[in-house]
Every structure is written in C-alpha cells, then in structure tokens.
C-alpha cells in the first residue's frame, strides 16, 4: 500500500517536462504568425476543445479516437480508429468554415475566427 509513497524524482521530472511541453505547444507562436485562427473540435455537436492554428502540436481527441495535428498554420486529422478513415483523407484545413468530419466518431474539426475569404464554404 505504501510502496509508492513519496513521488519519485523521475515522476516530478516527467510531470515538469510534460507541463513545459504543453505550455510550449500553446505559447510558441511561429515567427511569421498567422492571424489567430482556431481549430475547434466538437464531438456529438458539443464543443470539446479549441486549438490555436499558430502553434505546432499533436493531440488525441475524444479519448484517442482521432489524432489532431496542427502545423504550419493548418490542422488535419493524422490518424483515426474509424474503418473508412475519411477524416484522415480530408486533408489539411486552415480557412474559416472549413471542416474535417469523422462521421463514425461524430467528431468535427472546424476552422474558426481567422479572417477568411468567405463566410460560408460549399462542399
């Protein structure tokens, strides 16, 4: 029971490292800075997260069913557990209103807030 008493030094290092990494992911903007676009993730119609496009990083969505990658001011789903992988095939999005959809997982990633060329995007 008391075997794991006292957090080990290695664990502290790991926590510190991970925190630093996630903060880095947030705050290290690219030098040429894009204008504040966000990749907005919704599962079952409910927003679950927002990720600035001017950062670089990778995050597991929806408990790991889909992997979101943000780099070069663009967002894409790099991997998913759905059979058709259409979300992965939909490629990169970066303009306001563009959406990647994973129907099997009822998940969407939509670009919001960046000053875009249009209000609406046709399929």
């Amino acid at each position: 029971m008391m075997k794991g008493s006292g957090t080990r030094f290695a664990d502290i290092l790991l926590i510190g490292g991970l925190l630093a990494a996630s903060l880095l992911w947030l705050f290290v903007s690219r030098a040429d800075g894009t204008e504040g676009g966000m990749a907005v993730v919704a599962v079952n119609g409910q927003e679950t997260g927002r990720y600035p496009l001017d950062t670089e990083g990778e995050v597991a969505l929806n408990g790991g069913t889909n992997i979101l990658v943000i780099e070069d001011g663009k967002a894409r789903v790099s991997d998913a557990d759905c059979p058709d992988k259409l979300c992965v095939r939909q490629g990169e999005i970066y303009r306001t209103g563009q959406t990647v959809t994973c129907l099997p997982n009822r998940l969407t990633v939509t670009i919001e807030g960046k000053k875009g060329e249009a209000d609406l995007y046709l399929p």
Binding site: G49, P52, A60
Partner: peptide, 22 residues
C-alpha cells in the same frame, strides 16, 4: 493520468484566449 491532465490543462488554457472569437 498525468499526461491527460497536462493535455486537459493546455486545452483549458487555450480556450481562454478564444472566447472572443467564439
């Protein structure tokens, strides 16, 4: 668990800056 907490923290932090857009 710690990893998820860190990720959750980053999501929370990032949403602060985005409310305006929303």
């Amino acid at each position: 668990l710690l990893l998820s907490l860190c990720l959750a923290a980053s999501v929370l932090l990032s949403s602060c800056g985005a409310e305006e857009t929303s």
